[in-house]
Design a protein around this nucleic acid. Structure first.
Lengths: 242, 242
DNA sequence: GCGAACGGATTGTCTGTCAATCGGCTTGAC
DNA sequence: GTCAAGCCGATTGACAGACAATCCGTTCGC
């Protein structure tokens, strides 16, 4: 959408406090892979990197720690979280559950604008698939899930899903996986859309769960093969359905 | 259980950092109703109340904020979160979903010790019901859910459920509801146990969801009647199934 | 080669300081 | 009397500096 057409009154919505801005910066840096999983985050380095005092850095880190993006060991300091394959499995399991319920909620509560937004995000996904543009694909999928969460009618599910997405993203960064473009994924997403458009909550729930489970299966298989005997040898880019 | 018989090696398990201790103290104070929902938490007061510097207080508050127990408004400071009835409904909805899946997981993964622990907590619940001991009932139910979460085999579900429990507890504190002792509740819990003991995951899931939904229905009805035209007139103790 | 002691680096926490902001109170106008 | 404007105290947000506690890698001694 065009930014100017946003419904929000505040176009330039700068966080009221410095700490929030730092938080966003760090979150972004982790999401983008600028900070790799396992990497230690030394306070003083972050201070001069971002240009704020230790107070703001530390408080922002507390937030990220609570979100699970950062793991702080007492007297050793914070580091970007890593995810074991067992954790990945559990993460995808909860995600399938919540995303399913989010789909159900969306199917039942959505209004015209929300359905349209979903349509648009799906169109974007297809375009990204045709152009095999991985960056665009990631963006489009993020938008898709965003619309779904926003319209699910349950702020807690949305909140939980957001943190789950962030943590799953750690996997993507760590394993250099790319958001997928398989025809299966597109079919699954279409099924979600149809169920939602028909206001069939149960069907939407199943469709969403299946979509996530399919993605999980691929991601976990990839992860399993990676954590084999040769851990760190010339990682190749991989494709997975997110 | 007797503390000395704990499996943990650290009997006196003092948190490694002061901040964690403060965190626990504050969480406890909120859970117990010592700090009421809506009450402002002035930093300096907390400092002299707990006897630590502002640094530790602030960082602990950040954690509680992330958990949703505390709401911080920029330049106004933190206050104990309040929960609207709409939020309560959504909270119970997620909880039913997750608790259902936790029950399913427990049914499938539990070992003998865990089943025994569940048995014990149920026995405690029954004892509390017979003696109409509300304090004991709260403790027993907490233990029950704790065992269930611990044995569900998904650390994220456990984590989410813990924060949900904390937030639902805000409701209890706010409305002065007591953990219930209805015969229905006992029947529901028995059904959960039987399903779990039979390792029937789906049945356990349904049983858990139903249990939470029943509690939700009562709690929400009570909440709805409370938020009527006369908000703050001599609250009476109420009984609800948690 | 292995354990123990050492030293640098980093964190955890405190104190003090200062500007920005909020909310209530007073003041004043109508 | 009511309402708006403006002022003032209280509180937060953020910084800097300081210091003990702790951890980790290294070196030393055996």
């Amino acid at each position: 959408m065009v930014p100017k057409m946003s419904d929000d009154l505040q176009v330039v919505r700068q966080a009221a406090t410095l700490r929030r801005q730092v938080e966003d910066k760090l979150r972004g840096a982790i999401a983008s892979g600028r900070f790799q999983p396992g990497q230690r985050l030394v306070e003083r380095e972050l201070c001069e990197l971002i240009g704020v005092g230790r107070t703001s850095i530390r408080e922002a880190l507390r937030q990220l720690e609570a979100e699970g993006l950062v793991l702080t060991i007492p007297h050793r300091g914070p580091a970007v979280s890593t995810i074991t394959s067992a954790e990945a499995g559990e993460l995808y399991a909860v995600r399938a559950l919540l995303e399913g319920d989010a789909g159900k909620g969306f199917a039942r509560h959505h209004d015209g604008a929300q359905l349209l937004a979903l349509q648009n995000s799906i169109a974007l996904i297809k375009r990204a698939a045709e152009q095999t543009d991985q960056g665009l694909m990631l963006e489009a999928k993020t938008a898709f899930y965003q619309v779904l969460m926003d319209g699910c009618g349950n702020r807690f599910i949305k909140q939980f899903l957001m943190t789950i997405h962030n943590r799953v993203n750690l996997l993507r960064v760590k394993s250099m996986m790319e958001p997928g473009r398989s025809v299966h994924s597109l079919a699954e997403i279409n099924e979600i859309y149809e169920a939602v458009a028909a206001r069939d909550g149960d069907r939407a729930a199943v469709a969403c769960s299946n979509h996530i489970r399919a993605a999980a299966a691929i991601a976990l298989r990839m992860l399993g093969s990676e954590q084999g005997p040769t851990p760190n040898i010339a990682k190749k880019k991989k494709t997975v359905v997110v």
